[in-house]
Design a protein around this nucleic acid. Structure first.
Lengths: 333, 333
DNA sequence: TTGAAAGCGCTAACAA
DNA sequence: TTGTTAGCGCTTTCAA
């Protein structure tokens, strides 16, 4: 078989030029004459030469690798975001190193990322310890939390205005005549769930109301089912439920209709959060708040590219507006 | 600030040992005495040393990088597969380089993968040109097509038995008394759609029937909607529709119920393929064929690991059994 | 077992 | 513009 990999030296020998001429031809700002370039490219094509970007990264310190960490992909919001992030980084000449993690193993995963010399880290549906955040700062690796924030950490974040979204839902439900309004929280330690809840309570208060019942679904299917049953174990049940995200809301609707024999929205109104594609499906037709996924991805990429290559890392926080999407799962005024 | 990256030389200097001792301590089969190991680890911890795996990859030729290429993530089958693949490779000490691509740009993307010295390529919902496949063979990079196969190419593949699945659906519909059975194809050039269709026709033939109408949905939402309308533009319409995957089937059901005012399954039966999580949701309750995603991922990873590091690439083809999942979207006998 | 030395494939300063 | 030279951070012979 012989050697299987073609190096810049092989190309240089065939083209009868120096090895650095080959390097210049294949690097961005390379100053090479048209004639040289042509000879090199011709020899490279003949041999099937392909630059080894890993070797390049070792020297230049620019791996053009961005790590993305996600905890799960069952909530359809995240695959969508992942797809857009990946395409956006690719378009900018960066490649995505994908990591799935369970809470608890995140620190080890971040160590692996750093070993791969990634130039930036995006964390979606996942958080990070403060010691790790500091380590990233030390190595000059910018971190962007997607759809989450931790004010005390030296990391950037991109979110939408979850407080305002929760508030608008509260107004909408209160103004539609609902009186026993329940809330199903997501993960209690996530800023999304906390903010949506805070905004929701604030909105209710502005209408002189308080939440009728609060349950926790933990952003899981099982949790959502249990929370729904818990609410309707009480006498009378709720006449409206705000579920902290769409993914849980679908389960809630299934339990309500199939298991409890209730009609939506005649017997009980359901509203969610995220506006994932399924929310628009006729089988659910869910009233919800849309998160501007495309704009959030854009902001994430912008913050990343701004910091990549900089020696120092700056904390940036982007918050994008959300919008109430009224469909048919909640009664109207 | 000073130097920001800690190298094995820094550790060696602090521990007063040779640089190669540090290297051995951090590489797998490194023969080092316990005392040496302890000194090195202590110095490394003190400095916050982290091996540069890119430099290691340049020398050893083992990047421990696996590329995964997907064309889209809206069909929920793929995020699920991606999540499992990623976790499985991570567990084996490999990292995933994720690429999203549109048909047509795939060749350029594969070139990028090879530049990153990936040790293997998984292609899901995406195909590959024969010249590229040959190039991968030449570089000794194993390729596994997930949920797709191209017999003429020197690449491995993992599929489920789509022919048998289609056949079972045909029997099921025929035996339930349906007489005007339509089929909505996916992408015409994909082996999944072709096999499901072939099996379906075979199954119908075994019951002395033929397909009543055939339309093409192209695995897209818009295509599925158009195909549905096309079928019901004909006098009478179908009394059953086999949709080539679940993702399109949900759209078909929406169009049927919301736009055409038909009841499922009283007026028309709908069956899909894949058994994505949403198929089990009460709002759809779709009769379908389940693809063994977990087993397919397992087979993919096994084929990959078997070949990674081998000089020569072997063609492997894994086909896993599927299973009919009967829910409520199709009439029973 | 340990250390010295020679690279892996490439970039980047420097001189010509 | 081109070639020469010195590395990047690491693995891997080869002696000791």
């Amino acid at each position: 078989m012989g050697k299987t990999t073609v190096t810049s030296n092989d190309v240089a020998r065939l083209a009868e030029v120096s090895q650095s001429a080959v390097s210049r031809t294949f690097s961005d700002g390379g100053r090479v004459s048209a004639g040289m370039r042509a000879r090199v490219l011709q020899a490279a094509a003949q041999l099937g030469y392909r630059p080894n970007v890993l070797a390049r990264a070792v020297i230049s310190g620019r791996s053009r690798l961005i790590a993305i960490l996600v905890a799960y992909l069952d909530n359809h919001f995240y695959p969508l975001v992942l797809e857009h992030l990946c395409r956006a980084f690719q378009d900018q000449g960066y490649q995505v190193l994908l990591f799935m993690t369970d809470p608890g193993r995140q620190d080890a995963v971040v160590q692996t990322m750093l070993q791969y010399q990634v130039q930036g880290i995006v964390m979606a549906s996942a958080s990070m310890s403060s010691s790790l955040a500091r380590e990233c700062t030390r190595t000059g690796t910018p971190v962007v939390l997607f759809n989450r924030y931790v004010p005390s950490l030296p990391v950037s974040s991109v979110t939408s205005d979850n407080i305002e979204g929760g508030r608008q839902l509260a107004h909408f439900l209160a103004d539609s005549g609902h009186r026993r309004i329940a809330f199903i929280a997501g993960q209690e330690d996530s800023s999304t769930s906390r903010d949506r809840e805070a905004g929701f309570y604030k909105g209710l208060a502005e209408r002189g109301m308080t939440v009728w019942h609060r349950a926790v679904g933990g952003y899981t299917t099982d949790g959502a089912e249990a929370a729904t049953r818990e609410i309707f174990a009480e006498a009378g049940g709720a006449d409206a439920i705000f579920v902290a995200n769409d993914h849980m809301a679908f389960t809630v609707m299934d339990v309500l209709r199939r298991d409890l024999g209730l009609r939506i929205p005649e017997d009980v109104s359901v509203v969610g959060y995220d506006d994932v594609p399924e929310a628009g499906w006729a089988g659910y037709n869910l009233t919800t708040v849309s998160q501007p996924a495309a704009a959030m991805v854009e902001a994430t990429v912008a913050i990343m590219l701004e910091q990549v290559g900089d020696k120092a890392v700056h904390r940036r926080a982007g918050m994008l507006p959300c919008a109430l999407v009224i469909r048919g799962s909640a009664r109207l005024p």
